[in-house]
Amino acid sequence: MHLKTDDLLRLEIDFDSGSIPPPFSHRFKLKLNFEKNFLNTAVDMEYTHREELTEEEILNEGFTLDDDYHWVGELHNAWVAPIKKLYIKSKWSNKKIDEEEGGIRILAKDIHGKIARTVPLNQEDWKIESQEIIQAIFETSKREAPLTVNFLHITSDSSLEIALTMKFSIRKAFALINGLEKELNWEKTKELLTNVYLPDYDYDIAKENKPTKRGTYIDCGDGFWHEFGKGIYNIDASYDAVYKIKEGFLNL
């Protein structure tokens, strides 16, 4: 059953990663209550089956020994419209989620007390939206700072320096271009960032200091500078992500 979007009072997004092995296996529940000027939000995230691993095995994968996360608070109302838009366009199934595959289930409640428990057929859309909401929660709760990707293009007579920042907490993207701030289109900037994380970056030749020689460079947010043409490689030969990254930044 699909409830009327204008009547939506609450959504619960329940995710389980299925048969993915630890320490990656996890589940989370997002509770979203639509208030007048904000999104009343709660998240419970739990990593599962870690008792099967040693502490060293968990740490070696880049995790900590306490990655579970719980938070209750207010999210910016910029998230209300995209969540409702996704709900409107979704198709639903009454079938249960396969325990091996995992996935997302949705509980919706409206102002009249009607409740609908369903599984969205567009699972990937809901997974992406959920991860973005969780990132907004991390920023709002100060667990993580907004992501900033730095780009540097140096020629013989000029330089272009761009700091691109995604603020999931307010669902806005900004670029600081040679010191001047510019607001960017959110969806197009997400596409650019998706490309940024597609190539293989050679950290053996990456530099920690900001480059000063002629060339084009990118710092993906971790403080290491990679040079285009020397340490960034497309993984998929049919898709030139490296070119799209460079052109995307040069055209901001």
Rank of each mutant, 00 (worst) to 15 (best):
A42L: 09
K31T: 12
T194C: 09
P21W: 00
I104P: 05
Q131D: 08
K4H: 09
I128E: 07
K246T: 08
Y201W: 13
Y239M: 08
L193N: 03
A81L: 08
E57M: 06
H76W: 03
P22K: 02
S158E: 15
A116E: 07
F15R: 01
R50T: 01
E144H: 14
F224Q: 11
Y201G: 15
H226P: 08
I128M: 10
P22W: 05
D240W: 04
I245A: 10
S169E: 05
I106F: 02
N77Y: 08
L193S: 02
T165Y: 14
N251F: 07
V43F: 01
D236A: 07
T165V: 09
A136R: 00
E57N: 03
P22G: 08
T189R: 02
V119M: 07
I13H: 05
K96R: 15
S238C: 12
G221M: 09
I128G: 11
S19T: 06
G18N: 03
N195Y: 15
F34C: 01
G103Q: 04
I106L: 04
E52V: 12
R117M: 14
N122P: 06
Y47A: 01
K109E: 13
V43S: 05
I170S: 10
E247W: 06
I115V: 07
S169L: 05
L9R: 13
N251L: 07
F138R: 08
P21L: 01
F28W: 04
A237I: 14
D236Q: 12
G221W: 07
D219I: 04
A145E: 14
E61F: 09
F249R: 01
E35R: 08
T194D: 09
R143E: 12
E74F: 04
I177G: 00
Y47S: 01
K114C: 08
D14Q: 02
C220G: 15
K36Q: 14
E55W: 06
Y201Q: 13
Y233C: 14
Y201H: 13
K91A: 07
H112V: 12
N122D: 15
A78F: 07
S93D: 03
I218L: 15
A81K: 06
R171H: 01
F174C: 09
Y233N: 15
S141Y: 10
I133W: 01
T118R: 10
K96F: 15
K89F: 06
A173V: 02
E187F: 00
L9A: 14
F228D: 02
E55L: 05
A108W: 04
P21V: 00
L30G: 12
H76S: 03
G73T: 00
Y87K: 10
E181A: 03
A206T: 00
I58V: 02
K91Q: 13
Y203A: 12
A163C: 11
I111Y: 15
L121V: 03
N195D: 09
N209W: 09
K230Q: 12
L198H: 14
H226Y: 06
I177C: 00
K31N: 12
K114Q: 04
W225S: 07
N37C: 04
L184W: 01
E61Q: 15
D157W: 14
E187R: 02
N195H: 12
L164K: 05
P199I: 11
A78I: 07
Q131G: 11
P120N: 04
G62K: 10
